[in-house]
Structure formats: C-alpha cells, structure tokens
C-alpha cells in the first residue's frame, strides 16, 4: 500500500534530513514511528501525507508513484489518508462539528450524513456536548481528540498520527489507542509517531525507528533501545 525506495529528502538547498529510507507498509498494518527529536519523524510523515516531495527515490502509494505524480492527482490520494498533526491544525473559526465535518464536505458527502456521522464520532471521543465549541475554548486534550476525530471521520485507508496521545491523560491515551486499534482492525493502516514508551511496551506493533535521518524497521515486540528523547 505504501512503499519507500531509497528515499532522500532535503529542504531547499540544505542537507538531507532523510537518507536512503526504504520500507513497505502493507494494507491494514500498524506501525509506531519513533526516534529522537530532529531525527526526521515529521519530515517522514510529511512525505507520507503528501505535503512534500522527496528529493530522490521513489514513493509508491495506493499503487501510484507519488514522487512524480501530477498535482491534480494528489487530492484524491489525500482523501484516503487521515492525518493527526502534532499542532492539531484545527480551523479556529469553525465549531468542533464543522472542523470534523471538513473531510466529508470536501469529499462531497450529503449534509444529512455528515452531521449525523460527525456528532456520533464526537460523542465517542467524549466531545458530544461540545459540538458547537470553537477550538480556542477547548483544552489541549479536547483539541487533540477533535484532531483525531477529523482524521478518522472519512475512514481513511492510511492514518498518520504525530504524537496523538501527547496531550491527554493516560486513561484517554489508552482510549484513543483503542480507537486506532479498532480502526486498524477495520482495515486502516496506521502509523503512529510517539515518544510514549508505555504505549510501545503495551501495544506490540512493529516500529519504524529513525535516527540521524536513517530508518530501521524493528519487528513487533523488539525491546525499545531508548532512542527517544
């Protein structure tokens, strides 16, 4: 479903932040993405959610070479990807309901289905009574749950989450993890960038480990070597 082959990435004329990255994500897989700060996790995620082009190598996604794909081909691919940004990137002037409804409205889903689905999901992530709240009035944890709800509302084929449990208490972190696992069981491939060692210990999934711009894939259950800062 997603394949990186000798991918390198640099910002402008700067040094390479990712070097010779190669891995494959099969459909329905679940991977953690770990590494110290500055190792290139966010850059790797940017390549995965098509916010950046690689400076070399080939990225194949849903059977298409996206490293050289035309701009016009990207929106349909992006609709199959759900992203939880580390800084949430919620639209401040929209209510919680309208923020989560965005992916469905962009995809042209009829409005009656949009409202019902969104309200149901928001209730599930514990924001059922905050449908009309603006992001500015929500706590960090609530914003995070809102961002997660927006990422999963359209049932993406690939879910990318950058520190999705960083701002919530352990109970909510566990609850959100179960949401990701449930989604994964329904066929969504998940890549979850985290520093949370408890999560890595508790949920035995393979890990993409980044260090100095280079990536190593560790199989499920391999003890974490403590790279995280």
């Amino acid at each position: 479903m997603l394949r990186f082959q000798n991918v390198g990435m640099r910002y402008g004329p700067g040094p390479e932040v990712l070097r010779d990255v190669s891995f494959t994500l099969p459909p329905g897989s679940f991977h953690f993405l770990t590494g110290p700060s500055g190792a290139g996790k966010t850059s790797l995620l940017k390549l995965m959610y098509l916010a950046h082009r690689p400076s070399r190598g080939v990225i194949t996604m849903f059977g298409q070479d996206v490293s050289t794909a035309q701009r016009d081909a990207l929106p349909l691919l992006r609709r199959r990807i759900g992203v939880v940004f580390q800084d949430f990137r919620l639209l401040d002037h929209l209510s919680a309901l309208d923020n989560v409804a965005l992916p469905l409205r962009i995809a042209g889903v009829p409005e009656d289905r949009v409202t019902n689905n969104v309200a149901e999901l928001l209730a599930w992530v514990g924001l059922g009574d905050r449908l009309e709240a603006r992001p500015a009035t929500l706590s960090g944890g609530e914003k995070q749950r809102l961002a997660i709800a927006r990422a999963v509302i359209a049932r993406p084929s690939l879910l990318l989450a950058d520190e999705p449990t960083g701002n919530v208490d352990p109970d909510m972190a566990q609850r959100l993890m179960y949401l990701f696992v449930e989604l994964n069981k329904l066929g969504t491939a998940v890549v979850l960038a985290t520093h949370d060692l408890h999560l890595l210990d508790r949920f035995k999934f393979p890990t993409l480990r980044l260090k100095g711009g280079e990536l190593r894939v560790a199989p499920a259950g391999q003890p974490y070597s403590g790279q995280a800062s």
């Binding site: 959610y49 990207l74 609709r79 965005l102 992916p103 962009i106 995809a107």
Partner: peptide, 16 residues
Amino acid sequence: RDTIEVLHLIGAEDAY
C-alpha cells in the same frame, strides 16, 4: 495560507 494548506492536505481540490 495555513488554512488552505490544511484543506489541501484533507483532500480539497484547487477548485474547492
């Protein structure tokens, strides 16, 4: 620009 980037990443076409 930031909002438009988010819309793009969610799958919005330029025409949207």
